[in-house]
Design a protein around this nucleic acid. Sequence first.
DNA 1: TCAATATTACGGTATTTTCGAAATACCGTA
DNA 2: TACGGTATTTCGAAAATACCGTAATATTGA
Lengths: 108, 108
Amino acid sequence: MVQFMHPAPEDITLTGILNALGDPVRLQIVRKLHASPEGSNCGDASPCAGLARSTLSNHYRVLREAGLIRTTKRGVEHINVLRLDELERRFPGLVPSILNLADTDPRG
Amino acid sequence: MVQFMHPAPEDITLTGILNALGDPVRLQIVRKLHASPEGSNCGDASPCAGLARSTLSNHYRVLREAGLIRTTKRGVEHINVLRLDELERRFPGLVPSILNLADTDPRG
DNA sequence: TCAATATTACGGTATTTTCGAAATACCGTA
DNA sequence: TACGGTATTTCGAAAATACCGTAATATTGA
């Protein structure tokens, strides 16, 4: 029943965020999470169906440890939400800018 | 006398940029290059003195292949310049935003 | 207890990072 | 043309890290 460790806002680093988002799968996950601010479970935010659960889970862990998402439990599922407000205070404009560019760019 | 391969602007990817800048050493290099728009040789843009030359060279290669810098030869030295204009057309606001945040953030 | 959801553990493969040593390229000078 | 000095890359190898899949493990709800 160990709760997940989320870094405090002041412990979130710029390179940590960039590194986490520098993977196409993880960027897609974050885009999906951004599209559903109420949060979504791990399966729903999956960028493609072919990925193994464990692989997906590992990507969530990287995003969590980078400070990009917050994971809470609701019943049997884990709900992930983008930490938009906190990220905005820590690095104003960064995440929205990246997400906007990802939207307009045909490739990941 | 082999010229370096630089990706065309349309071949520069968002995740490629984020991945390249997701390394503290490379982010520092790019910050130094940004501070000297006329370009600087490899040694001058080095973030710290302890790094092996070959390691530094490898970081430059990553930055080059990601499309962040352009390397030309001037005499005995290699001059690196940030491809700011091209990057700005391809991903408006991205690189300046990251560099500004890196400036204000005490940590890399 | 059973099904659903997700994480963790583990092993294999692939990529990345790092370094020192050697090789390459260019310049100035002789 | 040859030579020495400087700047940088390439090579080769070791260590670290990343990624993915199978299987095992928790936790919740019915």
